[in-house]
């Protein structure tokens, strides 16, 4: 799981073009939206694309994303259970 969390942090940095950040700057338990990384709705779309492209997970509803994108750790746990790639 630790390895997946580190990989996911780097994928998020690349997908969202967080140029000045390193994986170490991202707290895996911090909220991704509102506070923490302060991501917005366009970032949410980018994360949905990332989940599909990298891990083969298709999210069906916005509500589903709201739960899954709570933090990097929650995302990693979901990916671990549902990944098809």
């Amino acid at each position: 799981m630790e390895q997946l969390i580190e990989e996911l942090k780097q994928e998020i940095i690349n997908a969202l073009n967080l140029e000045d950040m390193t994986p170490a700057d991202i707290d895996e338990n911090a909220p991704l939206f509102g506070e923490g990384l302060s991501l917005d709705s366009i970032d949410a779309l980018e994360l949905i694309v990332l989940m599909d492209k990298k891990y083969g997970i298709k999210l069906k509803t916005a509500a589903e994303g709201k739960e899954i994108f709570k933090s990097v750790k929650v995302m990693a746990e979901y990916i671990n259970e549902h990944r098809t790639k």
């Binding site: 997908a15 073009n17 366009i42 779309l45 980018e46 949905i48 694309v49 599909d52 492209k53």
Partner: peptide, 13 residues
């Protein structure tokens, strides 16, 4: 690449 599915929004915008 994505077979016209799952498009990244930032480049489109």
């Amino acid at each position: 690449d994505n077979d016209e599915e799952c498009m990244p929004p930032t480049a489109f915008m």
